[in-house]
Design a protein around this nucleic acid. Sequence first.
RNA 1: GCUGGCGUAGCUCAAUGGCAGAGCAGCUGAUUUGUAAUCAGCAGGUUGCGGGUUCGAUUCCCAUCGCCAGCUCCA
Length: 630
Amino acid sequence: MPKGAKVMEAAEKLGRKLAKRAICARIDGELVGLAQSLDKGGEFELLDFEAEPARAIYRHTAAHIMAQAVTRLYPAVKLAIGPAIEDGFYYDFDVPKPFSPEDLGQIEKEMAKIIQANYPIESAIMDRDHAIAHFQREKETYKAELVEDLPPDAKVTFFRQGEFMDLCAGPHLVSTGRVKAFKLLSLAGAYWRGDERRPMLQRIYGTAFDKKSDLDAYLQRLEEQKRRDHRRLGRELDLFSTHEEGGAGLVYWHPKGAMVRQLVEEFWRNVHNQNGYGLVYSPHIAKVDLWKTSGHWQWYKDDMYSPIKIDEAEYLLKPMNCPFHILIYQTQTRSYRDLPLRYAELGTVYRYERSGALHGLLRVRGFTQDDAHIFCRPEQLEDELVRVLELADFMAKSFDYESYDVILSVRDVEDTEHYIGDDEVWEQAEGALVNALKRKELDYELGIGEAQFYGPKIDIILRDALGRGWQGPTIQVDFNLPERFGLGFVGPDGSVQRPVMIHRTVLGSMERFVGGLIEHYGGAFPPWLAPVQVVVLPIADRHHEYAEKVGDELRQAGLRAEVDVRNEKIGFKIRWHEMQKVPFMLIVGDREAETEAVSLRARGEGDQGSVPLGKAMEDISAAAKMPRFS
RNA sequence: GCUGGCGUAGCUCAAUGGCAGAGCAGCUGAUUUGUAAUCAGCAGGUUGCGGGUUCGAUUCCCAUCGCCAGCUCCA
């Protein structure tokens, strides 16, 4: 290709069809727009909508089109930022009057005009000072601030489409007409630069696809997410409720939801007993002094509830279980031979969550953590972390979470205010976590400044059936609490040494975990977790006796079975229990009663035909087995 | 906590300043049913709670509680 030729021309050379679908190119790893000139050679690759970076460019252009439309309709608007995000884009605006949902339709219409006009999108470069002056003149104070943060010698790029020009690093589509399918989805407030002390802007979320059918499929996926919403299923399947009278963020588990939770807990207990944990119970409140020793009073106060006065002493509701497990540790002189000591507890804690953060079962003010604290010698730390990672993996797989993402949260070394303990101790802790992850060959993202006040942590984000992420296991290394409580163990040489603590949960909390499970399974729990595993459906009144007998036998065999003797037709009952997501239905009429048989129906799969009762019970029992750790 | 939206029967939703309604669920009765909704009748409400404007408020205003979408924060 000649120097100065456009990327697009190079693309055409590769093929008409290819060029038509291309959004941008990657030259030596750098993304460039199709309208840009080729000023250097290198490895050349065309990207279409299938490629994530190209998709982001496409949606980013859609965000610009939205900003252009908003600027036309609301001339007083000030623009902030408008990036592409997972599945779409947003743009933040400062407008005198907030948008209403009805405004979105208007904006969409204006966007359609801009797309129709097919304005070419051209880039321009200005030096930093000119750019600042330009934005100050235009009263675009947010844009001016963005440019001011750039280094003094920076060249600032702009993109122009029609009358609209926006500060932007690019690249972009070649013209506005390239956006084929878009939709504005929602409105929200958002702080400028995510800082709650700064102005609240109006954010519009939208999404864009290069095919109408893909947009429709995406919108259908949103519908599917709504159908699986645990708050909706929680009501429809009679699993749990919350009550205005009782207070926000506090959960009431109904018998069926409680059964699911109980099964999760039973499984959890089995696994922990098998894995060398001692299961403990601890109180819900403790004196303020204990929380002063642990540091919670100083470092975690904003998340804790006000003290309760009992006999002149002040007590606090626990936000964490760790100090209690430490007290248990301290009841004996521990030998190096005793370690590691692992205490596990389904411990109910209470934390103050800001009212706007509350959300169904996923964000609540009282919840039960599947907590454990491992006290070990420093040289045991890495092995223990590996064991926890293995346990976490087993737990995830047992609930059909096929994959997960790992985040290593470390302290921000600049921020000395939010963390206790010396640098050396932090480095040691962070190093142990990194080594454990390496040994399990787990890739991870780094979360700087995301650590707990007492130590760094690994967070595991479970990917559900729809590919969404759920906060699951977390593993924290802590050298600080053992120090604060003066914990010790007697070493082989008779000297007293300091143990290390691991705080960990492998599910998260019962509330959040079960909430996630409801959505993951869409309410259709696998047989071992289903609150009702089998329902017996008699055809007519004369079959009730046999149906009850079948129900009794099922229950005798340890299955959770119900008999539906309502005066309804069989079709009604089948529909009802299908919607209640019961895994198995046994239909009994004259034919079955005569031959000690049942007509088996499996959830979602329909009629499986007539089966002898004994065989049906065996099959159902086999399908309903709780997973075991091996 | 902040911004915006919302709160009407158990659930889903109508009624825009003038007698609060429907479907499903519930109850009663009829029907005795063979693989995703049998029919009929009955009952169900201080319109979240408190104040105000008005002859009159589900509707307009203020406050409060709760919910929703985000922001911030997090198991």
